[in-house]
Write a protein that binds this DNA or RNA. Sequence first.
DNA 1: ATCCTTTCTTACCCTACATCAATTTTTCTC
DNA 2: GAGAAAAATTGATGTAGGGTAAGAAAGGAT
Lengths: 193, 193
Amino acid sequence: MSIDTSILREIFNDTPFTREESILIAGKFEKIKLKKGDTLLHADEVVYNQYYVSDGCLRTYFMDNSGKEHTLQFAIKDWWISDYTAFFTATKAVMTIECIQEATVYKVSRTSMESLYEGTPSLETFFRKKMEKAFSAFQKRILFSLSLTARERYTSFISTYPNIEQSVKNYHIASYLGITTESLSRIRKEITQ
Amino acid sequence: MSIDTSILREIFNDTPFTREESILIAGKFEKIKLKKGDTLLHADEVVYNQYYVSDGCLRTYFMDNSGKEHTLQFAIKDWWISDYTAFFTATKAVMTIECIQEATVYKVSRTSMESLYEGTPSLETFFRKKMEKAFSAFQKRILFSLSLTARERYTSFISTYPNIEQSVKNYHIASYLGITTESLSRIRKEITQ
DNA sequence: ATCCTTTCTTACCCTACATCAATTTTTCTC
DNA sequence: GAGAAAAATTGATGTAGGGTAAGAAAGGAT
């Protein structure tokens, strides 16, 4: 365990920590390198950690009873990823996190987080705000899934996440949008005409 | 402005505050009574406040270009409600909050919240955890909308929120599930047979 | 460069849910 | 409790997107 304190600047942006705080925080993180296809977290595993993505691309997906995959989230540089429902309650994951492009992530456990919050309120503020943004993003996604057609959701996705689009397969995007890869193909054809 | 400090126990459960903190916090809240049909927040208004629901039932809905309503959230006792995306960033609401059953809510502004966080870390912890739960709920909702049929989403809704079901109209539920009221009617018929 | 695997596309038909148009039931109001 | 308004149901028909199957492109591996 432990990472270089200089990386904290990347992870926590402009959040100011004292020298002591930095050392304490850095001591709780661990650097992990992943290759394409690696699984960072398996469904049914108890979730102890969340991960900061420094580089590469990952996705969280849920596999339903019929074996179909549903992508909940992609994560690229500066995103955090985990099965958060399971992470918050230290229960079993329903989702799997897969590396879809060679990645470097920094891992930290929930218990580490909780203990760090105690001595470092600015850290808690940082995560509260992260949480607020993530919450907003999910809210928007729900509204979109309720009110937009598949085609509209696709064009919205493309313009919102142009960087992600390059890193992922079309069938990943389809499973994120809630449509089949065939439908996405038809939509793409329609658009380019 | 200001409410009785005794109500804080209801709002913040078992969160312990000092006498001084309690007075400070209570000073930032305001009690509001709503009748059925009242609008607590209009789309296009800048959102300064969030609301704790002490009693009654409200819903947040989004109206799309074609005039169709999409219910994002219901709120009953002990839930918080706002257009959170707009609340966090002090921007204009895209959603409207409507009282659907005579309600009592307690209002507090974002700036009040931010200033209270500074002196009372336990308050920030309280809201961080609330946020985590809300985030999980939204995540679950996204997974359900990706992987379940309309019928499955309906039965899941009914069993998850039996208390809400009684307070709301079927067309509210339909707009929450992302289907038409006619489809919901057919699903209900199917189930009772 | 060639073979093999993965990904994407296309064509055909199918289904879950939508839309439109009444009609019935429930709820509100005086 | 009669009449009006709102909500729910039902039937007929339409459509976005799904399922299946096959082929075409694009990437890797050797």
